[in-house]
């Protein structure tokens, strides 16, 4: 707010004081929210690092085994085995609320199966296919874990950023400007009061001189 827009009146001063109080209260609450979010973030951080590296390891492993399976068995037989798998991993997705940030909470039924459950037959396929299936089951397992943690972290980070922006805007822009306007009005009001006093004195002096 530019100072020239401020009307130096008493009601404006009262309004400004109210707004400053409100901004300060908002500032304090937002600051607490920011600190709380950062605490939550630190809780997730370690887990996220672990799950991410686990995910990458499992992915590389899975890629390697499927390359081997494609070479040994031939792409078509691997595909045939893949088409035969019937068991479908089921997950339950819930939503959790961390300080206004909606994050997913995922639970899963058993992803890992033994050879018989997979459904492509024990005799028709070789051990390489089994290994590949196992590697990918492990990968899916770590995907389920990582999906929850990673999304939680991304959303927390976004919220931290916007809260931080708001806190800083209040601290460095809104509150200083409002206080400046308040001081300006106070000064003008005092000035006007002194003007009035001097004027009164002069009038009185004139009246007494007569």
């Amino acid at each position: 707010m530019a100072l020239k827009d401020v009307k130096p009146t008493r009601s404006e001063l009262i309004n400004l004081k109210k707004r400053i109080k409100l901004s300060e209260r908002g500032y304090n609450i937002l600051k607490m929210k920011r600190d709380g979010l950062i605490l939550e973030f630190f809780k997730v951080l370690e887990e996220a690092k672990k799950s991410k590296s686990e995910l990458n390891d499992n992915y590389e492993k899975a890629l390697k085994t499927i390359a081997v399976a494609n070479t040994v068995e031939g792409a078509i037989r691997v595909k045939a085995a893949a088409m035969a798998v019937k068991e479908n991993p089921q997950i339950t997705l819930n939503q959790k609320n961390i300080m206004g940030v909606v994050v997913p909470e995922i639970e899963s039924s058993a992803v890992k199966k033994d050879i018989v459950q997979r459904g492509y037959g024990v005799l028709g396929s070789s051990a390489v296919v089994d290994e590949t299936a196992e590697a990918f089951e492990e990968l899916v397992d770590s995907i389920i874990r990582a999906a929850e943690i990673e999304t939680t972290m991304k959303r927390l980070l976004d919220e931290i950023e916007s809260t931080k922006r708001r806190v800083n805007a209040l601290e460095f822009k809104v509150i200083p400007e409002l206080s400046e306007a308040r001081d300006f009005i106070k000064m003008r009001l005092d000035e006007m009061e002194r003007d009035e006093l001097v004027r009164l004195k002069k009038i009185r002096a004139k009246a007494q001189a007569k």
Binding site: A62, A135, V140
Partner: peptide, 17 residues
Amino acid sequence: IAVIGNSEFILGFRLAG
């Protein structure tokens, strides 16, 4: 779970069910 990608990428996931 849904998987989108090229046919090579999705093949392994099919194997996992």
